[in-house]
Amino acid sequence: MSQFRRRAFTLIELLVVIAIIAILIGLLLPAVQKVREAAARMSCQNNLKQFGLAIHNYANTNDNKFPATRVTVGGDAKFRAWTPLALPYVEQDNVAKQWNFTVKWNQGTNLPVSQTSFKLFKCPSAPDSRRQGTYGALGLGDYGTMNAVRRRFYTANSIPNFPVAGTAAGDEANGAMAKVTDTPIVGVTDGTSNTILLAEDAGRPNLFQKGKDLGTNTADGHGWADPDGVGISLDGVQANLVTTGGTCFINCTNDSEVYAFHSGGTNVLMGDGSVRFIREGISAATFAALVTASAGDIPGDF
């Protein structure tokens, strides 16, 4: 009976097989990452939809007004943010009952409540690991109101006709959730479908610029309950990403500007409760028109 000798793989054959496997993995990983990011982006959009329902439900029981971004009490313009008002409407009624509306957001029992993390307040695309901020490890907050557009944004981007209607101190054109005053829904005369309520300002307190963590913290706005962290007054930044009043305004810096960890743009919540994805390449004039609530600057196709 003949005996057959099994032939082993040569070293070259093994290397070829390994190379083929490496190529296949290299081709597969980007696809997996794209699917994962698509799922994260959808989850982020769902968070904003939940906030949209919460804000409208709040308005329905409060004279049909959108809440102000922050509340002034006793001369303190940063006494409390809008976010504690939303808690009962996002199935966090037990936590809402712990909030003391008679004291400042970072005092008494409000501080430990502010240090509570909620899945709804964090975009899944943003990093989980964050540094501690001024008041310790505050609960993460990756979304903020678009409360105004500053005059210097118009100047830096050569946008004519700074709107007179809906201005605050002549320096800012108000959004649908202004800094200190509640806004009647009927007062959003530019149309709720044309006006942004919330946008992403993700990653804080870590300071990010163009996708890079600089290893330090943003100047303020370190949690979901921090009045400095729940609203954006659109400024834009210059090429150095520092100077205010600039031409770079989406995904440039998360220091109180619109910033997301999605490729090419950011999710926003519109005043009618819909969620849109805004591309980084949108014109400054169109984006400004999307922020203002009653300036008469209706945006075109976006």
Score class of each variant (00 low, 15 high):
residue 232 I to W: 00
residue 232 I to A: 02
residue 232 I to E: 00
residue 232 I to T: 01
residue 233 S to V: 01
residue 233 S to G: 15
residue 234 L to K: 01
residue 234 L to V: 09
residue 234 L to R: 00
residue 234 L to H: 00
residue 234 L to F: 02
residue 235 D to V: 00
residue 235 D to F: 11
residue 235 D to K: 01
residue 235 D to Q: 14
residue 236 G to H: 07
residue 236 G to F: 01
residue 236 G to Q: 06
residue 236 G to V: 01
residue 236 G to D: 03
residue 237 V to R: 13
residue 237 V to S: 02
residue 237 V to E: 02
residue 238 Q to T: 14
residue 238 Q to V: 04
residue 238 Q to C: 06
residue 238 Q to W: 06
residue 240 N to L: 11
residue 240 N to W: 14
residue 240 N to E: 12
residue 240 N to K: 11
residue 240 N to Y: 10
residue 240 N to V: 11
residue 241 L to H: 12
residue 241 L to G: 06
residue 241 L to C: 14
residue 241 L to R: 15
residue 241 L to F: 08
residue 242 V to I: 14
residue 242 V to D: 13
residue 242 V to S: 15
residue 243 T to N: 15
residue 243 T to W: 04
residue 244 T to Q: 09
residue 245 G to V: 06
residue 245 G to D: 12
residue 245 G to M: 09
residue 246 G to V: 05
residue 246 G to K: 04
residue 247 T to Q: 14
residue 247 T to W: 02
residue 247 T to K: 11
residue 247 T to E: 11
residue 247 T to I: 07
residue 247 T to R: 13
residue 248 C to S: 14
residue 248 C to M: 12
residue 248 C to L: 07
residue 248 C to F: 08
residue 248 C to T: 10
residue 248 C to A: 11
residue 249 F to H: 02
residue 249 F to G: 00
residue 249 F to R: 01
residue 249 F to C: 00
residue 249 F to D: 01
residue 250 I to E: 10
residue 251 N to A: 09
residue 251 N to C: 09
residue 251 N to D: 14
residue 251 N to M: 11
residue 251 N to P: 02
residue 252 C to K: 05
residue 252 C to F: 08
residue 252 C to D: 11
residue 253 T to I: 14
residue 253 T to N: 12
residue 253 T to G: 03
residue 253 T to Y: 08
residue 254 N to A: 13
residue 254 N to Y: 09
residue 254 N to Q: 13
residue 255 D to P: 01
residue 255 D to N: 15
residue 255 D to G: 04
residue 256 S to T: 02
residue 256 S to L: 08
residue 256 S to D: 10
residue 257 E to V: 04
residue 257 E to Y: 00
residue 257 E to L: 01
residue 257 E to D: 13
residue 258 V to H: 00
residue 258 V to G: 02
residue 258 V to M: 15
residue 259 Y to T: 03
residue 259 Y to V: 04
residue 259 Y to Q: 09
residue 259 Y to I: 10
residue 260 A to R: 03
residue 260 A to V: 02
residue 261 F to H: 10
residue 261 F to C: 09
residue 262 H to F: 13
residue 262 H to M: 05
residue 262 H to V: 10
residue 262 H to Y: 13
residue 262 H to E: 15
residue 263 S to K: 15
residue 263 S to W: 04
residue 263 S to F: 04
residue 263 S to L: 11
residue 263 S to A: 12
residue 264 G to I: 11
residue 264 G to T: 08
residue 264 G to A: 12
residue 264 G to Q: 08
residue 264 G to K: 09
residue 264 G to S: 13
residue 265 G to H: 12
residue 266 T to R: 05
residue 267 N to K: 06
residue 267 N to W: 03
residue 268 V to C: 11
residue 268 V to G: 02
residue 268 V to N: 06
residue 268 V to Q: 06
residue 269 L to Q: 03
residue 269 L to G: 07
residue 270 M to T: 05
residue 270 M to V: 06
residue 270 M to R: 08
residue 270 M to P: 03
residue 271 G to L: 08
residue 271 G to V: 05
residue 271 G to W: 02
residue 271 G to R: 05
residue 271 G to I: 00
residue 271 G to S: 13
residue 272 D to N: 15
residue 272 D to R: 10
residue 272 D to G: 14
residue 272 D to Q: 11
residue 272 D to L: 08
residue 273 G to P: 07
residue 273 G to R: 01
residue 273 G to I: 01
residue 273 G to C: 08
residue 274 S to T: 15
residue 274 S to C: 10
residue 274 S to M: 02
